[in-house]
């Protein structure tokens, strides 16, 4: 994990928060909801029951209508980063590093943005840390779960509602993807599914016969990696991706698929643009 690169990139980035309302303790982040901060958010016509202190009397004078100033609420929203701790995430050094870097970048940017990040590592032993401990947790956590993300989620404590969730995984699981995405999005104000894939996941190399061993279960399959076999894999992988994408859409989640072979900077500038926006501010 290249922490220096994460730090360098995080300095100029901000999380692309959704337009929907955030919830959290009073903080420094302007929420989408109307509130009592000094930042003007909008104008609208007065309705009975509105706070008369917010009437813009100048506008009333100019227009003759009761115009109300709508001020933006300031909250401190939650940011939950869930990292898949299954063994398949450590399939290669690049895949493992890229997963850790994306998670670290998310927590760093979120913290810098005033969010209160929480990190969940869904490994063999569920782990949850907050704030500055996220970095050290990402350094030391092991991708050692012998089951997939769906099973690992059962070991986690319930995710907190109304937070922004970023789930880092390869999502190569043989489960009902719709149910998985629905479960991840339940209660979240926004959900980003960052799918980190190794080059061998995307385009496996062929050649001689091999004994394929599942990284998580240890199950083995002996295959001659011929062109038809590779083509069949590509077909099934494409079907899986389509299903994942559809499930993400149904769950109002954003699926971001990245290749571990690409450097983090390229990912931020490319597939992760939907999560990280330039600017370093809200």
């Amino acid at each position: 994990m290249d922490e220096a690169e994460v730090a360098r990139l995080g300095a100029g980035l901000a999380l692309a928060l959704p337009r929907g309302p955030h919830r959290g303790r009073v903080g420094e982040v302007r929420a989408a909801s109307a509130g009592s901060s000094l930042e003007l958010h909008d104008f609208r016509a007065y309705q009975p029951g509105d706070d008369l202190r917010q009437v813009d009397w100048n506008a009333v004078a100019r227009t003759g209508d009761l115009i109300l100033r709508v001020r933006q609420d300031e909250v401190s929203p939650r940011l939950e980063v869930v990292v898949d701790g299954s063994r398949s995430m450590a399939l290669s050094a690049s895949k493992e590093a890229r997963a850790r870097e994306v998670a670290l970048l998310t927590t760093d940017v979120g913290a810098r943005q005033g969010l209160s990040p929480a990190l969940w590592v869904a490994g063999a032993r569920a782990e949850r840390v907050q704030g500055g401990a996220c970095r050290s947790a990402l350094r030391t956590s092991e991708f050692d779960a012998r089951d997939d993300l769906s099973a690992a989620l059962a070991r986690l404590p319930p995710l907190r509602p109304c937070g922004v969730r970023v789930v880092v995984s390869d999502f190569l699981v043989e489960v009902d993807l719709g149910a998985l995405c629905s479960r991840l999005s339940r209660g979240a104000s926004a959900l980003f599914l960052v799918q980190v894939l190794d080059a061998e996941d995307l385009d496996p190399s062929g050649g001689e016969g091999a004994r394929l061993v599942d990284a998580e279960s240890g199950a083995a399959l002996e295959e001659l990696l011929t062109e038809p076999v590779l083509a069949a894999y590509a077909r099934r992988f494409a079907e899986h991706q389509r299903a994942l994408r559809a499930a993400a859409q149904r769950a109002r989640a954003t699926l971001l698929t990245v290749s571990a072979a690409d450097p983090l900077s390229a990912l931020v500038a490319g597939p992760l643009r939907a999560l990280f926006v330039p600017g370093g501010g809200a």
Binding site: D170, L172, G209, A210, A215, S217, G218, V229
Partner: peptide, 29 residues
């Protein structure tokens, strides 16, 4: 066949026809 080098993969189910039945544990395998 014993001499074949094992290749770790992320998702073995993508290499074969998916089956609804759960896989046995590695002890058997």
């Amino acid at each position: 066949r014993r001499r074949q080098k094992p290749v770790m993969v992320s998702a073995l189910f993508l290499w074969r026809t998916p089956r609804p039945r759960a896989e046995a544990g590695p002890r058997w395998e």
